[in-house]
Amino acid sequence: MNFRQRARRFAGGLVVATALLIAVPGQALATSTPPAPAPPPTATPAPVPVKVAPVPAPRTSPPTQERAPATARGQISQIPSGAPDTGGGSTAGDTEMVLVALGMLGLTGAAGLGGALARRRPRDTAQG
């Protein structure tokens, strides 16, 4: 019984190992060359792979090479960064802010003095 079982297992393992040995390289071949074997008969199917092949070529560096001639003559040689400050921003408000501050100070002072006067008047009249 034991011998039979062992023999069966060995035979099964052998079959599996043989199958793997055949199948794995087969799959490898299958993934790497699926379309290639088919077209050999004539040249007609050839265009399909041939069209794919040229793709790498234009990848070299077309955009910069195409733009270079355009910028070389007449176009802006140094592109400024940011937005131009063409308003009165650099000095606007200098004088005005001082005047506004003085005005605010004056308003505060006027309010304070007015209050002081208002408090003083009744006292003066009470004393008089």
Partner: peptide, 14 residues
């Protein structure tokens, strides 16, 4: 008070 009012008017004008 007059000085304060003058300053206030200046501020308002500005």
């Amino acid at each position: 008070l007059i000085l304060a009012v003058v300053l206030a008017l200046t501020g308002a004008g500005s």
